[in-house]
Amino acid sequence: MAKTILVVDDSSSVRQVVGIALKAAGYDIIEASDGRDALSKLTGQKVHLMISDVNMPNMDGITFVKEVKKLPAYKFTPIIMLTTESQDSKKLEGQAAGAKAWIVKPFQPAQMMAAVSKLIMP
């Protein structure tokens, strides 16, 4: 059974590109457009990895991580934050909240896959 990755980003093109790369590698994808949307889609199903943007409307990535860590079904799920070089403070904030992995935007699909494969394998 394919593992499931939640992709949270307000940019649909980022979601699509990330989604396409991950699907090609054999993962199932759940897409969400922001933190609130993502939380509403986490209904207890198994999620093996979450990839979340930081700056998003409705609920930003840092808040999302903090909320996810409160959910028993997801508190041990690895989370990759999508940050930019200029967001070092956000990266640290994310790490403090429990999202220790990150990918610096812009990234090549290969870079993303390398980051993902440090955390889970298909």
Binding site: K75, F76, T77, P78, I79, G98, A99, K100, A101, S117, K118, L119, I120, M121
Partner: peptide, 17 residues
């Protein structure tokens, strides 16, 4: 490490790549 979402095994598996 677990509470931060990491599984040590995943790093071993990655090393194998």
């Amino acid at each position: 490490v677990y509470r931060n979402g990491m599984d040590p095994f995943s790093f071993l598996r990655y090393l194998n790549t």
